[in-house]
Design a protein around this nucleic acid. Structure first.
Lengths: 149, 149
DNA sequence: TAAATAAAAGACAAAAAGGTCTTTTAATAT
DNA sequence: ATATTAAAAGACCTTTTTGTCTTTTATTTA
């Protein structure tokens, strides 16, 4: 579905967010290791994301990446479009240039419904909501943070 | 969503089916032109599809491609998997190797629903059903084959 | 049986995706 | 100030995808 760099970016951003919640700023080495992505490729992707303002970074000892707490709730869709463009969200399932209501491809209606759902998902979910999901899931499966009732 | 060769294959197969219904066997040149795909690339794709048995072909004058009327109703899914593999139908949205119910990625549940819908669509629709859709659509917008009531 | 037609086969090549590495710049700690 | 740490920049490389072209093989018609 998504391209490799998009996948790495999504995984990395959620990881950064989770670490930020623990007052930590992970570096490229840590991020790449944790999300199981190649070090240099990861570095390149996050350089780009930093330049585009999706993350902030600090150089030198103790440096690393962090997400500006100001701009809370970054929808996945924004990130995805910044990396691989919006083709997935607007394109025709048959690959036709001018497929629309007036000149529909044989799959127009059926594919449109799926594309709408994809749009809904990535517009609704954010890096922060996914990080929160992960935390909740951990809580649900671990005893250590759960009060006995 | 789909790769280029998959798109060309889908468009081409539907076109062949539509022509077959008119007792015609289009050649590569005609197919490529109609589906707006590069000639040689189209040729290569349909050579492969012929070898895999998805279409039959005849050489020489009057030759061209046709779909075995015996094996009616070819689900899009079979065709797609034959060309680009099943990644789209089984893969994790986050790109994780071992993402499952026990070890879900942050998007597991939400993405699973969309993947299911994609599966449903391509398993349900066939080259023949799409051709029929197209015919019906033409009828709906044209007066020439419609009886006055 | 020769000429024409059309697919089959396979080599070749450009572009995009995916990945690696070295050098430079900036920050921090000693 | 200097050594250390870590990101930024950018050159370079590999693989996959996408596309092109030439030669060969099969079929049909005249």
């Amino acid at each position: 579905m998504f391209k490799k760099d998009t996948e790495y970016a999504l995984r990395g951003m959620v990881y950064i967010q989770l670490q930020n919640l623990k007052e930590r700023r992970p570096g490229v080495a840590e991020i790449a290791h944790e999300i199981e992505a190649p070090y240099f490729f990861t570095a390149k992707i996050f350089q780009r994301l930093a330049k585009q303002g999706f993350v902030k970074s600090m150089k030198g000892k103790g440096g690393g990446f962090f997400i500006d707490p100001e701009k809370n709730d970054l929808p996945l869709k924004e990130l995805i479009i910044a990396i691989e463009g919006e083709e997935l969200f607007v394109g025709c399932g048959f690959g036709l240039k001018n497929c629309d209501e007036n000149n529909p491809c044989p799959l127009h209606h059926q594919y449109g419904m799926i594309r709408d759902q994809i749009n809904q998902l990535v517009a609704g979910e954010t890096i922060q909501s996914l990080a929160q999901n992960t935390l909740n899931k951990t809580l649900a499966f671990s005893r250590e943070n759960v009060e006995e009732r």
